[in-house]
Structures are given as structure tokens and as C-alpha cells.
């Protein structure tokens, strides 16, 4: 069964890299440009996992994760944070918001796939 991934990142480059890496791994990928866009994509179809950036315009990663978790259907949807930040207080904030895991950019493709496998049923 193909895994569906929703990747949310405001950087065109990062979206391109994610798209490339995840497709190579055999996943279905959909992309969103920021938190607001991400929520819209999420309303269209439910992915198996969400990967999101933190620093984004309109709605940042924290707000996005909180908004996702407020929806009953997504209470246990795995959400991985993929960001350049690695400060413990930011990690704690993301976790409080409901993030499942935290990956520091730049990402290694295999590790990313491993992390996805670790939080999804594949």
C-alpha cells in the first residue's frame, strides 16, 4: 500500500527536495506552501503522515500542528517537524503543539524515510 505524505514547507527548494526524496522512496506526495495551505490540503484528503516546516508565513508550523490536532480525526495522525532549528525549547514547543517527531534539516533521505517508517504503519 502506498504511503501518502503531505509535506508543508514555504521554501520552494525544500518542497522540491522533499518531493524528490519521498517519491524516490515510493510514496505519494502532496505539497503545501504554509500552514494555511496545509490545512486546506488536509481537508481535501487525509494523508498517512504530515511533514511540516516551522518558520512559514501566514500560519507557522506550531499553529499548523495545533490546528491539525484540534480536529478529532487527526488526533493521532503522525506529524513530523522538519526544520533547521534544533533548540530544545522549540522542540518542546512543537511537542506541546502535538508534533510526533523532530527532524533537523538538512535531511538525509534514508533517515527521513526511516523516520517516516517509524511513525507510520507501512
Amino acid at each position: 500500500m502506498t504511503l501518502h505524505v503531505l509535506a508543508v514547507d514555504d521554501s520552494r527548494t525544500m518542497r522540491g527536495l522533499l518531493d524528490h526524496a519521498l517519491r524516490e522512496a515510493g510514496f505519494h506526495v502532496r505539497l503545501a506552501e504554509d500552514g494555511v495551505d496545509g490545512l486546506e490540503r488536509l481537508a481535501e484528503a487525509t494523508p498517512d503522515i504530515v511533514i511540516t516546516d516551522i518558520n512559514m508565513p501566514r500560519l507557522d508550523g506550531f499553529g499548523f500542528i495545533e490546528a491539525v490536532r484540534r480536529q478529532r480525526a487527526f488526533r493521532s495522525l503522525p506529524i513530523l517537524v522538519l526544520t533547521t532549528e534544533s533548540a530544545p525549547e522549540l522542540k518542546a514547543r512543537a511537542r506541546d503543539a502535538g508534533a510526533t517527531g523532530w527532524i533537523v534539516k538538512p535531511f538525509d533521505e534514508q533517515k527521513l524515510v526511516d523516520a517516516i517508517q517509524r511513525v507510520t504503519t507501512m
Binding site: 500500500m1 502506498t2 504511503l3 501518502h4 518531493d19 517519491r23 505519494h28 506526495v29 502532496r30 505539497l31 490540503r41 481535501e44 484528503a45 487525509t46 494523508p47 498517512d48 478529532r72 480525526a73 487527526f74 488526533r75 493521532s76 495522525l77 507510520t120 504503519t121
Partner: peptide, 24 residues
Amino acid sequence: PAPPVAPRLGPVPADPMPEAPAAV
């Protein structure tokens, strides 16, 4: 009774995700 389990079971056939090009 909540459906949190559903997303974990992979895509629900009735609600397939569109192919990526549509997003592009």
C-alpha cells in the same frame, strides 16, 4: 468511537488522495 485509527491504516479507499501532479 473516534476515528483516529483510520488514518493509520493507510489510505481509505473511498477518499483517495489525488495524484501529486494535481497539486502541482
